[in-house]
Write a protein that binds this DNA or RNA. Structure first.
Lengths: 224, 224
DNA sequence: TGAAATAATAAGGTCAACCATAAAATTTTC
DNA sequence: GAAAATTTTATGGTTGACCTTATTATTTCA
């Protein structure tokens, strides 16, 4: 079941693919998220393809195979369990936990993963609002749409933040765009311009590339 | 202070040197402990020498420089803090903690190290009995001699176990050779033969290569 | 439909940390 | 003091994950 040993690099690619959604992912977007050149990402997709972890349809993009999806869930489980630990127990700043948990994740044996999950009380969401896959790799992929697709005038509730860069997370934290927060889109500037939001009675400007990774849900019970 | 980035490999070499004591260490012994060929260890010593971390006197051995000693203390700190966490909080089996902590150690940022230390209550010894350096890199190098040098008839108390292989640690665990345990050397077989010990009223055979890494202290207060 | 944009492939290069084999230098031991 | 053992150096090779530059293929859109 568990693969001979997955390199750190392989794990990062799998995680990125899982985080980018379960449809076909353009290699250019993958490369961008990982900070490598498209050529490198392409090479890597060939390698992962040979291992049966992804399926690549030229000019269409890549998807995880079932095997790849399972492996990715495992990586996400480790990543997000560490996030919980770092945030809840070590009291590390919210914006830094993704990056710090990421390093630990690659170094975590299955035995430690399960012991950690038990220690934490088998949490089901990470501090960034993302679901934590269970030990079998099953987890409900997050409901909701991205803030980017939210029309002006709408009021939504932040469900999760899928950004990974500490810098971006720091910006979101400063502006209060955190899971559970109610946000109203005041304006969406034309020409792919930024959104203007109302967060905690403060106006906040947010570029689309950041809004992309904020998962929101239409606020239903406005009076809770 | 903290180096640009130390590779996992560099950290392992520094740690092994620190664990092997503060005298000149023969490259062959280093290679043996790390499971690489002497040629590889030699190459690596040249590299670490260029970085000012070790001093190599040909045919005499290597020692850590002050810079190297500090770096090594930092690695040991991380290693041993994780050992405490894995053992005390995650309830992982004693014999496995070294290896599992080792992986985590390489992936641990300074910020996490310090938060972990605080979470654990700033422990000063790891479950294997070794001292945990403080945040400045200072720590009392373990008092005592190795079980290997203990004469037949002597009764000693195990202070620490400096073995690293899970297999060896498992054997020691099974035989009860753990920190705090009183041990009597019944016989030391000739020709570098094994020791026969009395541990918990049971006779135990122990090869010299294992005994080498059991640090003991002459039992003073026999009636505690 | 043809040009522009995007995506894929090809070719060649780097870097760290290993490996093996073999030759040379030094130390230890008889 | 010479042979044996150990250590060091030299040479050349491998692997994974990147990189650049250039060419070719495909898709999108005006």
């Amino acid at each position: 079941m568990s693969l001979p040993h997955m390199s750190e690099s392989t794990e990062m690619y799998l995680k990125a693919l899982a985080e980018l959604g379960d449809r076909h992912v353009a290699i250019a977007r993958l490369a961008e998220r990982l900070g490598v050149t498209p050529v490198s990402a392409n090479e890597m997709m060939r390698r992962l393809g040979e291992q049966g972890l992804v399926a690549h349809t030229p000019y269409k993009g890549v998807t995880l195979t079932e095997k790849g999806r399972e492996a990715a869930a495992n990586v996400l489980r480790r990543q997000r369990l560490w996030e919980v630990f770092l945030y809840e127990h070590l009291k590390i700043e919210w914006s830094k936990i993704y990056e710090l948990a990421c390093s630990l994740e690659h170094a975590t044996a299955p035995e430690v993963t399960e012991a950690l999950a038990a220690f934490l009380g088998n949490p089901t969401v990470c501090p960034r609002g993302n679901p934590i896959p269970d030990a079998n790799g099953t987890f409900a992929p997050l409901e909701g749409k991205s803030l980017r697709e939210t029309a002006a005038g709408e009021t939504v509730t932040v469900r999760a933040v899928n950004a990974t860069s500490t810098e971006v997370l720091k910006y979101l934290q400063e502006k209060g765009i955190l899971p559970g927060q109610r946000v109203t889109v005041i304006e969406a500037a034309p020409l792919e311009g930024p959104l203007t939001l109302l967060v905690n009675e403060r106006e906040v400007a947010l570029g689309l590339s950041m809004a992309e990774f904020v998962v929101v849900e239409k606020t239903v019970d406005s009076g809770r």
